[in-house]
Design a protein around this nucleic acid. Structure first.
Length: 278
DNA sequence: AGCTGCTCCTGGTCGC
DNA sequence: TGCGACCAGGAGCAGC
């Protein structure tokens, strides 16, 4: 599933393949993907040129001309491809941007969870989800002191807080399990029992893990911008996610899978000791 | 305000 | 083999 590293990879691919192209037509095949009325979305974008592709957290910000932005969230299975218009269209293609050069940028999404919204550039803060987004996971923006203070305010489990994009943006279920294992923290640990030393360690692991994944996913960019293609490569680097019953790399104890806040959660019961509330 | 639970979807897996 | 039940989950939202 696309988390921040995969979205960044898609961003880089679209930057290469779609910037400079001008939209000649739009075909919306599954209307619910588009937050705006179909005709507003289409009328706004036809004739516009793609000028840049930015990213904020897991949101893609596709810039059209100087004044318009399409905010695109891939959710679970969204993908983009840029292909010749003659290329076969899969049944999971829901939005097609046709360009004046005969190519098409297509949005594919097996489970149709993804969303796209046309806004005026500069109005990003009107989009629910974007306006309350926390810091990007980079050392200059995501600060240890603020992270610690934020966690101290909560007594619920650390895992759902890391999934909350308001605390830090970019983590999904896979990377949360991975960073908690790397940090020796049990996913159900109440956030406010974590020490400053522990949250500092967690902070560093989050930054390092996402950077590693971005760099790892940045190796292959072709006309098909496929998040799962890169996830396949990163698969080899996972320590706990999807490894129920497999011996922990550090201590050999079988990895366990439980539910935390309705999410499948993988951890090592020996390396990640559960602690009670204060 | 914090938190929980529901919703959207389809493909894959499991039991019978 | 076929079929139904159930699971996977990011984030917006309602409701307590």
């Amino acid at each position: 599933m696309p988390e921040l590293p995969e979205v960044e990879n898609v961003r880089r691919g679209l930057e290469t393949l779609a910037v400079g192209k001008t939209v000649s037509a739009i075909d919306i095949r599954w209307s619910k993907i588009i937050v705006n009325p179909d005709e507003v979305f289409t009328a706004g974008l036809v004739g516009q040129q793609i000028t840049a592709v930015d990213r904020r957290g897991k949101y893609l910000l596709i810039r059209f001309g100087e004044q318009l932005t399409v905010v695109s969230h891939l959710r679970m299975e969204g993908k983009y491809e840029v292909v010749a218009k003659e290329a076969p269209i899969s049944k999971h293609t829901h939005v097609i941007f046709e360009f004046t050069d005969g190519q098409q940028m297509r949005y594919l999404d097996t489970r149709k969870f993804g969303r796209m919204q046309l806004i005026e550039t500069g109005q990003e803060n009107t989009v629910a989800g974007l306006k309350d987004l926390g810091p990007e996971p980079t050392p200059t923006i995501f600060l240890k002191a603020g992270f610690y203070q934020r966690l101290q305010k909560h007594h619920k489990a650390i895992k759902p807080l890391l999934l909350d994009q308001k605390v830090v943006t970019g983590l999904g279920n896979i990377y949360v399990d991975e960073t908690l294992w790397l940090s020796h923290i049990h996913p159900e640990t109440p956030a406010n029992v974590l020490t400053r030393t522990e949250t500092d360690r967690l902070h560093d692991e989050i930054i390092a893990e996402l950077e590693l994944a971005i760099n790892h996913g940045g190796t292959t960019v072709n006309t098909f911008l496929n998040a799962t293609g890169h996830a396949g490569a990163f698969q080899e680097m996972l320590h706990v996610y999807g490894k129920k019953g497999v011996p922990c790399e550090r201590c050999g104890t079988p990895i366990e899978k439980i539910k935390v806040a309705q999410r499948g959660t993988h951890f090592c019961p020996k390396c990640q000791i559960k602690r009670d509330a204060k």
